[in-house]
Simulated assay, not measured.
Amino acid sequence: MSKYSDAELYANYQDILDLVKRKDLTMADEIYKIPVSEYADRGIWEREVKLVRRTPMMLGFSCDLPEPGSYWAMTRVGVPLLLTRLKTGEVRLFINACRHRGVKVANEGQGKQPRFTCLYHAWTYGLDGSLLALPENRIFGDVDKCDYGLIELAVEERAGIIWGVLTPGVALDLDDFLGEELDAMLRKEGFERFHSVELVELPAANWKITYEGNGESYHFASLHAKSFASFTYPNILHNTKLGKHSLNMTPVVGIEKCDPSSRADLERFVQRSYMLFPGTVCSFASDTAFGERDSKSEVVSRIFMNHVLPGDSPETSITISRTLVSAPFVGTPIEEETRIWARSSHETVRLEDYPVVQSAQDTVHSGGQDYFTFGRNEIALHHFHDALHEALKDEALDA
């Protein structure tokens, strides 16, 4: 379970139950419009890509680097990355490019090894990014190994989450980025206890069109009637602004029968979903999702995360979609239900959300409308676009 106090969980439950009884939600004062051109303009998109690369990004969790010598090579927003854990337990982040001629020193994926050797000319690097050796250095020429380590990027592991910045020389200030309130909330979630179930990469439409579906449940009744709407109440949502970010809380079907004296019930019947600027949504899903559990059973916390990133053009994006659980599950009685939940969550996004998202993308250049309109009930998306517009004013993006 989370580290939230019983009183905090009860207060969340009371807020959500009140909305359920009134069939209500947190609403904006008025509707909100965004020019469709903002989804198509290449100049705006290029600034957005720079912004994403300069903004702290949730790259992974502590479980992704389970022991010293662990590594994870990945590509995010066109930047090849190498994440490592040193013998000291410290996490480091580098651009995955040999300093000789730029070939990746590690193939994409996760594993464990003490060093990385470039396949092209066998330059070898340590977990700390230092250049350890190069063959035939006598005839290669005068090279100071200290000047040829892998290019390092800012990274910090905090409360079970690994954050990084994708632009060399840009500092990582998590205190400023998260703010005191959100930082405290994330610490209470206990991310360090989670185990990865599945990670899939899903190609989709423009990153903003794609991300917007994560910020409202207005579409659940029509699009997800047999999936997400089978265990959550559509269009009932409690939204809290947290600087650039926000927290959405939604009720799980059956909340009216919740036993408020039971911590397990308080965790089970209120879902928390953090919208982390600019494009990550990290949701704590009920353990009743896509199935039922004994109400007296211990709660196994579940994370369903979608990390939406700009693709190679304004018309494309990549979603890093992940599922995690708070207990070891392989070879246990909960393995089957865990894998069913994970598969169902990813498949719902791929088969239900993303065809619709692509349909919207197909109309962007049609001239069919000048604006996309967001209702008062889609308040989290108002906040997302306000925060994005404000961030895009940063003069550093002009460089």
Rank of each mutant, 00 (worst) to 15 (best):
S273E: 04
M27G: 02
N248A: 13
L172A: 00
E46I: 05
Y10W: 13
L324T: 06
G69E: 13
S297P: 14
P278L: 02
F61G: 02
G215M: 09
E212C: 11
K112Y: 04
F269K: 02
T84E: 06
L83G: 03
T26D: 02
L83P: 00
T348W: 10
A285Q: 07
P260D: 00
G111W: 09
I139R: 08
P355K: 13
T84G: 01
I320Q: 08
V143I: 12
F384E: 04
I162H: 09
E198Y: 10
N206I: 07
G129N: 04
S261H: 15
I34G: 05
K33E: 04
A133Y: 06
S70E: 01
I255F: 14
G141W: 02
F61A: 06
H238L: 08
K23N: 10
G69R: 02
A380L: 02
A97L: 06
I16T: 08
I162M: 08
P135Y: 01
H307A: 15
H219P: 03
R85Q: 11
H382Q: 00
S301M: 15
G141K: 01
Y120H: 10
S246P: 01
F284S: 03
T319Q: 12
D29Y: 13
E298P: 10
T240C: 05
P234V: 04
W45C: 10
W123I: 01
Y274K: 04
K244E: 07
V325L: 11
R376I: 04
T124G: 00
H389V: 05
E337N: 08
L392S: 00
Y211V: 02
G243F: 02
S222N: 12
Q369M: 07
R99V: 01
Q271N: 08
S326M: 11
N377W: 14
I209R: 10
F329A: 05
G102D: 08
V299F: 12
S295D: 14
D18F: 10
V252L: 11
I340N: 09
G169D: 14
A204S: 08
H245D: 00
L150P: 10
S297E: 15
K296N: 11
S62Y: 09
Y4I: 13
P168C: 15
V105P: 07
V253M: 03
P114T: 15
L127S: 04
A7M: 06
H382M: 03
S70Q: 09
Y218L: 03
P80D: 15
N12L: 08
S295I: 14
